[in-house]
Design a binder for these strands. Structure first.
Length: 620
RNA sequence: GGUUCCGUAGCUCAGCUGGAUAGAGCAACUGACUUCUAAUCAGUAGGUCUCAGGUUCGAAUCCUGACGGAAUCACCA
């Protein structure tokens, strides 16, 4: 049993087709060259072999090839019960007994869908926020993708290390620090009751406001007029010029800008006061982040801090220079020539010997390998950095790093609002905490309207409502292919009908309800139910496909595969539930059989949704 | 300008290793709750799969070229 168990029915079919082609037509094809499909609903059968490709070599019509192969399969495979041929499509009917046996085996497997350990170790980096402001919708997509991909890789047999790199240093956090120092008057998150990461973010916003005020009044000055006169391009009016000049102003004239940069210099020099302030404000941010992560249901195995890693990578530069992978210009800056990979020349170390972003990332990659010995690293980062990661991976490859072949940039598209792009300057950013509160609030409203949970204790009810609200939000985001830029309509995200998380939860809840009612049923009766209905076979075939879906999704780093699979399965089950009696079935054994089928489907839905970070309620 | 990604119903998305009449959900309209809980189910309507060529027995899917949108091409991160 054990030895043959892992062979998939499709593999069995394809191998038999291959043999059939050889025996009847002396045709040698590989099983990978045979096109197959799950049979479409309009036709009878479970799996379909496409016979068009064999017409030329066999000199027979596709119908003839289909008929000959069909007869061969029925005669030689106990799993194939019948066949029919429509044009170039050979539809195969798998024996009821096969599905029956599969179901009974799967029943006792609590890990159904999980693949055996493959001995490989993968690191997934996600979230990676800046510490000057709270998490927003963009982070949510990142976090959900990172988390579900991690779970998926685990299910596919990998050992997974989840990490984030916290961008805790630089000019941005110094702006928050400065604003708090100047205008905070000693207020704290505790004294104001504001969630601590939002508290820090508020001072970042305050800095920007004060800076804008300062900039505005400077624009009236004589100095500004001189700058305008000297630097403007021919057709640029005053307003447009100053809009574009903002960064230069910050660096060259701004008092606040100078103070912020001084603070950064002090921090870099290890000034105790600056470091203490930095530590205090970052600690606030981390406390707030942790709350948000917890609400979202995610966690990390290890945190890397940019304040520790931003000086890394110098040794790798030396290695690269020695190996001739890098070259040095007369000004001492270090470069790599990637023209043969169509990637141009790229700076990896500044002329003053300090790091650039690339240097850090090179160093961090090596550090992670030293820390965990991973074969693979997945970076969940928005698609604006596609070019950066192409270069990073190419360099690591040329340096001959041992993990270089296992690098993957899980690139995802930006999240847009129906009104357009999210812009922090225009206040259109959707805050992560607000968003979660909103969907949960919506779930609460719906639940009250329905009144199904009234009898439950409040704590239990809240827990269910939380699960429903988060399911709506998470599913809405995960169901879209990562690569695609997506439109996030807050109104639609709180929808709980149709293609949504709660719809899938509802299928699970319905099953739990039936199972509770059938707690004492005798399930051994199921063996007496032998003539399966088409709908039942289709459901079993979908369940049968689950491990393949997990494998496909993990290999593609694409959780949307599982999201859409769960939806399809839930949809089929809802229809089945509507069309067929379970507890009241009068065919012998049907009730027991359908209970087992339902139970297994509930298990698959729960496992599948768990891979997406979505929890199932027992009632709703 | 170079490179990469995206373009499928009014809207949000599946389908893309080439296969049968292109699928869902939302929104609109119609019907099904005394029933294993209707956050459900059934139905109506909605399509030149951006366009034009090419490859093929067969193209939403592969190739080429246009058009539209996005990102990127820093001694920024």
């Amino acid at each position: 049993m054990q030895a043959t168990k892992s062979l998939n029915i499709v593999d069995i079919l394809l191998e038999a087709v291959r043999k059939g082609l050889q025996e009847h037509f002396e045709l040698d094809v590989s099983t990978t060259d045979i096109t197959w499909n799950v049979t479409r609903k309009e036709f009878e059968g479970d799996y379909t072999i496409v016979t068009f490709p064999f017409t030329r070599t066999t000199k027979k019509s596709p119908e003839q090839v289909g008929a000959i192969l069909g007869e061969y399969l029925v005669a030689n495979l106990p799993e194939v019960e019948a066949f029919n041929v429509v044009k170039g499509f050979l539809n195969l009917v798998v024996a009821d007994g096969f599905w029956h046996r599969f179901l009974m085996q799967t029943r006792d497997n609590p890990h159904y869908g999980y693949l055996p350990a493959n001995g490989q170790k993968v690191m997934v980096e996600f979230s990676s926020p800046n510490t000057n402001k709270p998490l927003h919708l963009g982070h949510i997509r990142n976090i959900l993708l990172g988390w579900s991909t991690s779970r998926l890789l685990q299910a596919a047999g990998y050992e997974v290390v989840k990490v984030q790199i916290v961008n805790d240093r630089g000019i941005a956090i110094c702006k928050s620090m400065l604003a708090w120092e100047k205008f905070g008057e000693g207020r704290t998150p505790a004294s104001t009751g504001i969630k601590s990461d939002h508290f820090v973010g508020d001072y970042y916003v305050l800095f920007e406001q004060k800076f804008q005020e300062e900039y505005k009044s400077w624009q009236e000055s004589e100095e500004a007029s001189q700058v305008y006169a000297a630097r403007k391009e021919a057709d640029l009016d005053r307003d447009s010029f100053f809009k574009a000049y903002k960064n230069d102003y910050f660096n060259d004239y701004s008092i606040l800008g100078k103070e912020a940069r001084n603070l950064l210099l002090q921090w870099e020099a290890g000034d105790p006061a600056a470091v203490a302030l930095w530590e205090k404000m970052n600690a606030w941010v981390y406390a707030g982040f942790n709350e948000t992560y917890q609400r979202l249901g995610v966690s990390f195995d290890k945190l890397y801090y940019e304040s520790n890693t931003y000086l890394l990578g110098k040794d790798i530069i030396n290695d690269g220079l020695n190996a001739g992978v890098f070259y040095q210009k007369p000004d001492q800056s270090v470069w790599i020539d990637l023209e043969d990979a169509k990637l141009d020349h790229k700076l990896v170390l500044r002329s003053d010997g300090t790091s650039v972003y690339m240097t850090q990332d090179l160093g961090t990659a090596r550090l992670r390998y030293q820390d965990f010995g991973v074969n693979r690293m997945v970076y969940v980062v928005a698609d604006e950095q596609n070019y950066h990661f192409k270069v990073l991976f190419e360099i690591l490859k040329r340096l001959g790093e041992p993990y270089a072949d296992g690098l993957f940039h899980l690139s995802y598209g930006m999240v847009d609002l129906p009104t357009g792009k999210m812009k922090s300057r225009e206040g259109t950013v959707v805050d992560a905490d607000d968003l979660m509160a909103e969907v949960i609030g919506e779930a609460r409203g719906n639940s009250l309207e329905r009144g199904a949970l009234e009898a439950l204790p409040e704590a239990e009810r809240d827990e269910i409502i939380r699960k429903i609200g988060l399911a709506a939000l998470k599913f809405f985001i995960i169901k879209v292919h990562p690569r695609k830029r997506m439109v996030f309509d807050p109104k639609e995200s709180v929808d709980m009908q149709g293609q949504t998380g709660p719809y899938i939860q509802n299928a699970y809840v319905r099953i739990q309800s039936v199972l509770r009612k059938a707690a004492t049923a005798d399930l051994s009766e199921a063996d007496r139910y032998v003539a399966l209905d088409v709908a039942e076979k289709q459901l079993i075939a979908m369940v049968y496909d689950f491990p393949t879906q997990v494998k496909t999704a993990a290999e593609a780093y694409d959780p949307s595969v599982i999201a859409n699979y769960c939806y399809d399965l839930a949809k089929s089950y809802h229809k089945f539930y509507h069309d067929f009696p379970i507890l009241k079935a009068d065919i012998p054994g049907a009730s027991a059989f359908r209970l087992i089928l339902s139970q297994i489907i509930a298990g698959v839905l729960q496992t599948g949704m768990d891979l997406l970070g979505i929890e199932m309620p027992e009632r709703m």
